[in-house]
Design a protein around this nucleic acid. Structure first.
Lengths: 207, 207
DNA sequence: GTCTATATGATGATAGAC
DNA sequence: GTCTATCATCATATAGAC
């Protein structure tokens, strides 16, 4: 769900649509997605400021001006590439459906599962890296966390905001050490080891 | 201790040193420190890639070429500006001198105390921001964490590496939410509130 | 020690040909 | 839709005058 490619209506061959008269050009089929894929990868690797439009175009084997043609500006590419890989509105209820004494384990497994999958990891990592050095991206991420995550989780439970944020902090720090700094043995630990490690902590915060 | 300014022998007025013959020029007294202060601030704010030599020079009210003259290259400025604000070799023993059942609280208070102080925070924040998007900086930080922190702490206790790193992850994620993303209410929480929040978690990892 | 001048190259954005 | 050409900026780094 909410996978990286295949927005409804924009993928594939345009099927048997035929001549539709004015209004809708047949284009945007292919290179657009290629550009977005390259953008996600580069933003994830270098962050917003570090990934250049030209590098994205180069990686997509496309002319830089074409990127502009499609998305208008670098920021246009970014927000389009971020279109969310992970929707808290679907993940949160799934977590909170767990029995209360296994909330920590469930949250750990869900969160780490998303990060384990390169396709879902890329946009989040891009957001995180960008937010560290770019104020606009930081504001975007703050807004996302606050309204999509903490507000939602806070409304559905009686866990104080501070505790929700401490739990989020635990997971953010963990993935930074694992996927960005690649500190051993954490970087090579199995998902099960990590769940075992942090589940009690999350349980402490949320339980 | 290990404060930001005042490396022995390089600060102040050169005292009553007088004519010392060849060998040692009287220079480097003032502008050098001004450049380093500006560098720390800008690296902390924008990370290694985002902070330009020119911006550093501008902020220090100095010619860009002078920065080169002193430090040779941008990387030279960086490592000089990083010269450590915080020495685990002095902080770790202090933490581990605490009674075992208060390890978590002591670590939390020590760590948060460092981050509360802008002068000690700046170089660490600079390192962290830089490490997120620059591979050289990431390697530097990984090396620092591994050998100066985890190895030392691992040698002095029987706490497994994974647990040490999970504890570090908790604190890193917390300061990112607090100082970089500035998520509320965490960003405005008092030191005591934060200690109360995370001390049990650290105690769980280290105890 | 401090500066000007410059070499060299990348960036985001735009205008407009085909 | 796709491209060339170009603008205006900014970057790191160097050589060398004073």
């Amino acid at each position: 769900m909410t996978s990286t490619r295949g927005n409804p209506g924009t993928d594939g061959t345009d099927g048997a649509r035929g001549a539709r008269g004015p209004g809708r050009r047949p284009g945007r089929t292919e290179t657009r997605e290629a550009i977005l894929a390259a953008a996600r990868e580069l933003f994830a690797e270098k962050g917003y400021d570090g990934a250049s439009l030209r590098a994205i175009a180069r990686s997509a084997a496309v002319d830089p001006a074409l990127v502009h043609h499609f998305f208008g500006s670098k920021e246009g590419v970014f927000i389009e590439a971020m279109r969310f890989p992970v929707d808290p509105a679907v993940l949160l209820p799934r977590i909170m459906a767990a029995p209360r004494e296994r909330l920590g384990e469930t949250m750990a497994r869900t969160f780490l599962g998303v990060w384990q999958d390169p396709d879902r990891r890329a946009p989040i990592l891009a957001m995180l890296r960008s937010a560290m050095t770019n104020e606009r991206a930081a504001a975007l991420m703050r807004e996302f966390l606050t309204s999509a995550l903490f507000a939602r989780a806070g409304a559905a439970t009686d866990v104080p905001r501070l505790r929700l944020q401490a739990a989020a902090g635990q997971m953010i720090g963990l993935v930074i050490l694992r996927y960005v700094l690649r500190v051993e043995p954490l970087a090579s630990a199995s998902e099960d080891e990590m769940v075992e490690l942090v589940a009690p902590v999350l349980q402490n915060y949320l339980g």
